[in-house]
């Protein structure tokens, strides 16, 4: 018999033209299940009107981002055990800095628009993917193999970013990381965007994005690196190199 916990989920609820509220559901759960499983269980057995987004259930699609006890999580890979304990109340809310569609679902159209604007790579050669583990040494011919990029476009970094909270115009962590991934040398056409008022210079280095990113993108480091690239590219322009 797997271990059983009694858990109370406190879920943010909001329907069109209604004021937001919190609903609670007390469930028997296996602590090794994921937060998303518990949410899906509420929908399947307790309240069919609950709206939430999910698809892959293994951290590849980026659909299931929510705030769990106030922290941005990819709920499909967050075991209950990692965020709560037997008998506790677990609060689940939608991501911040996006308009709410219903309950736990937000409209991330703005993020996708920005990812399109910076032409973010959806697939890239495995040799360019900066995999730290397992330590692999690539042969030049491995560049023919492609892989899906690390960024899931899940929006957690946007939700956690204190600057994104103040202005929707800010490009934000994931789109800036996507510019860095392409590189100023290979993609000088992205310089004006990166160098703009709403680009790299608006970042306050809060590092919240990297703290919540579930997919090893490390946007904060990439933004710092992009600043260096932007300075380099501008120097090259000045000196005509």
């Amino acid at each position: 018999m797997p271990e059983q916990w009694t858990l109370t989920l406190r879920l943010y609820r909001q329907k069109a033209n209604e004021a937001p509220r919190y609903d609670t559901f007390t469930l028997q759960v296996n602590p090794d299940e994921y937060v998303l499983d518990a949410v899906e269980r509420v929908w399947a057995f307790h309240d069919r009107s609950l709206c939430f987004r999910h698809a892959c259930h293994h951290s590849t699609c980026g659909a299931c981002g929510m705030r769990v006890n106030g922290v941005e999580k990819l709920t499909c890979i967050t075991p209950l055990r990692a965020v709560t304990q037997n008998g506790a109340v677990l609060t689940i809310e939608p991501l911040r800095n996006f308009p709410i569609v219903s309950d736990l679902v937000v409209d991330m159209g703005d993020l996708y628009r920005k990812m399109e604007r910076v032409n973010a790579r959806a697939v890239l050669p495995v040799t360019e993917a900066e995999i730290e583990h397992p330590a692999s040494t690539w042969n030049p011919e491995d560049a023919q193999y492609l892989r899906l990029s690390d960024c899931l476009e899940c929006g957690l970094c946007i939700s956690a970013c204190p600057v994104a909270a103040t202005t929707a115009a800010y490009l934000g962590p994931a789109p800036l990381a996507a510019i860095q991934d392409q590189g100023m040398r290979r993609h000088p056409e992205l310089l004006p965007l990166a160098d703009s008022e709403d680009g790299v210079w608006r970042c306050h280095s809060a590092f919240e994005c990297t703290a919540v990113c579930p997919s090893f993108v490390d946007p904060a480091r990439r933004i710092m690196d992009l600043r260096r690239q932007v300075v380099g590219a501008k120097l090259r322009q000045v000196f005509g190199k």
Partner: peptide
């Protein structure tokens, strides 16, 4: 592009 599903957003009404 898959992203255009979201950027071409049709009839859904949003409220915050």
């Amino acid at each position: 592009s898959y992203r255009q599903y979201y950027t071409l957003s049709n009839q859904e009404k949003h409220y915050a």
